[in-house]
Amino acid sequence: MKINQNTVLQGQRVTLVPYTAAHVPRYHEWMQSEELQRLTASEPLSLEQEYEMQRSWRDDADKCTFIVLDTERWSGQACADEDCMVGDVNLFLTDAEDPTLGEIEIMIADPSYRGRGFGKEATLMMMSYGVRNLGITKFEAKIGQENEASIYMFKKLHFKEVAVNSIFQEVTLRLDVSDQERWWLLEQTNHVEEKSYVELKLPAGVLQT
Rank of each mutant, 00 (worst) to 15 (best):
Q208E: 15
I3E: 14
S46M: 07
I143P: 04
K155C: 00
F92P: 02
T40E: 14
L200S: 10
A80T: 06
T100D: 03
P18N: 05
V177F: 05
T20D: 13
M1V: 06
V8G: 01
Q5F: 07
I143A: 06
K142N: 13
I151C: 12
L185V: 00
T71L: 03
Q77M: 12
S196H: 10
E194T: 14
A80K: 07
L157N: 08
T94H: 11
W57K: 14
Q10G: 04
K142Q: 14
Q12N: 15
C64G: 05
I167P: 01
M125I: 12
L101R: 13
M125N: 01
V68M: 15
P111E: 01
N90A: 13
H191Y: 09
T15W: 04
G130I: 01
K142W: 11
V162G: 04
V198Q: 14
K195I: 10
K201F: 15
Q188K: 15
M125P: 00
L186C: 12
R182F: 03
V8D: 02
P99S: 07
N6W: 09
M85L: 09
D95P: 00
H191V: 03
T94L: 13
N90M: 15
N6M: 04
R73E: 02
M85T: 08
G135C: 05
A61M: 12
L200M: 14
G102N: 00
L93D: 07
Y113W: 08
E82H: 13
V177S: 05
D83R: 13
F118G: 01
V14F: 07
E72C: 04
E97Y: 07
E34W: 02
K156G: 08
A141Q: 03
T100G: 02
V171K: 15
M53W: 15
P44L: 06
N147A: 09
Q32F: 03
I167W: 12
N190A: 08
E48D: 14
S42H: 11
E72I: 02
I167F: 13
L36A: 05
C84W: 03
L45E: 05
Y129S: 00
R55E: 12
V8Q: 07
T100M: 05
A109L: 04
E34N: 09
V162I: 15
T100S: 15
C84H: 04
L173Q: 11
S46K: 07
V164E: 11
P99C: 03
K142A: 10
P44D: 05
A41H: 06
E146F: 15
T40S: 11
E105G: 12
K156Y: 08
W74N: 11
R132F: 12
D88C: 12
L47R: 02
E140N: 11
E148N: 05
E146N: 05
V131I: 05
L39H: 09
L124F: 06
A109M: 03
A78R: 15
L16A: 02
V198Y: 06
D176R: 13
R114Y: 02
L173K: 04
A96H: 12
